[in-house]
Design a binder for these strands. Sequence first.
DNA 1: CGTACAGTTGAACGGGCTCAAGGCTCGTGG
DNA 2: CCACGAGCCTTGAGCCCGTTCAACTGTACG
Lengths: 225, 225
Amino acid sequence: MLNAATILPFDARAIALPVPTAAPAERGHRLQVARHEPVFLAGDEAAQLFEVVEGAVMLSMILEDGRRQIVDLVFAGGVVGLSETDAYGVTCEALVPSTLRGHWKHDVNRDEALRRLLFRQMERQICRLHDQVLSLGRKTAMEKVATLLVRFCELQGEGTELRGRRLDLPMTRSEMGDYLGLSLETVCRTLTDLQGQGLIEIGRQHGVVFIRQPRRLRQVASLVE
Amino acid sequence: MLNAATILPFDARAIALPVPTAAPAERGHRLQVARHEPVFLAGDEAAQLFEVVEGAVMLSMILEDGRRQIVDLVFAGGVVGLSETDAYGVTCEALVPSTLRGHWKHDVNRDEALRRLLFRQMERQICRLHDQVLSLGRKTAMEKVATLLVRFCELQGEGTELRGRRLDLPMTRSEMGDYLGLSLETVCRTLTDLQGQGLIEIGRQHGVVFIRQPRRLRQVASLVE
DNA sequence: CGTACAGTTGAACGGGCTCAAGGCTCGTGG
DNA sequence: CCACGAGCCTTGAGCCCGTTCAACTGTACG
């Protein structure tokens, strides 16, 4: 299941870290992953669940001809590794350097407190997926991109004033496209367009935008206040 | 929350059934719903979870301008009514006449056995949503429609020989469109196209198709055997 | 300083949408 | 049993949003 051999061949940046062979601790064992390094791959034996302690990971699926869809983004507090069968159905890799806590399924079955925690997180995840399905099915490119920006704002800005806020995108244009069901070019053009309308400003540094009109951004995203 | 007044005005076929005022039984109380009758509406107080005992329901979300997305289909055995907040985020209505079992959240918090059941179902639901996101984000109209047909086959055909099988679609073209993120016309054209290729045959009766080449249908759907 | 890769922009194509018109079925009432 | 209306389904024509292909600029990093 989880070892250095599972590194994806197509991602040269992935760094083979030592396998965490430490015995499962009282409340799970820790795991550090670098950006773009896989936590598990679709098809691996689904023996563990992972809590995201710090950072962010993405879950993706790939069709045979190479089309990729990022099916979910999971930030600190979230859970990954759920599977209907005994093999993972999605690949999980880190968006940014992250810390996870692994729990053997075997242990989850015994640990009632842990299961309560997971329950709450799964409820969240399902609601998030519903929103994502709505986005993918019925929103325009403009609405999709604006929705994603707003979501990032909410994650980074917890109760902060958003106007003029520097927003650090944890994803490249290509990843945003794969998450939103768009091409990377469309993501680019849409961001440029939003900048032209004065709602955002694209920073010179990669992965940085400044929010100029958060309220109008929410409107463009077709999200209610 | 759940009462006759919650019947959607735009669905004239919905029949107002008496509210199930029966005291919650040992393991939840029963609820019968007719086709297109709501179980709960987005915004209702999320006080109950529901198991689908028999039939099928759909979960949908609507944007302000009327665009609708059916975010999930839940068949017998599944669970609906999960919510991140204290109000439902989606509307749930019956696709076919259905029987549900309601559980007050209050009770769920106490019932460990029930929570174990829900846990398993939520895991399933998350995997199903991942597949749906992949479909919506990266599949063509042809692949989407074929994928849905295959899924219906698997639900109705449990281990049966599929070739020549009569398949009863629980959804109209419009509902299929709202589920797949397509217009109803595109769903129509795609089905006609599949018939032209000899993979299916569209029955004269509404909601009926015959599967002619199940294997090729799976291939068209970009699903692996 | 140079290379690899992220990001941007343009031009042309095409899948799916919109708008429109008709045919079919199903349920209902005569 | 048949007639009729409502709603579901089908098909056509033209358009548009987002894709593809291509070239180029800018940034990060050794």
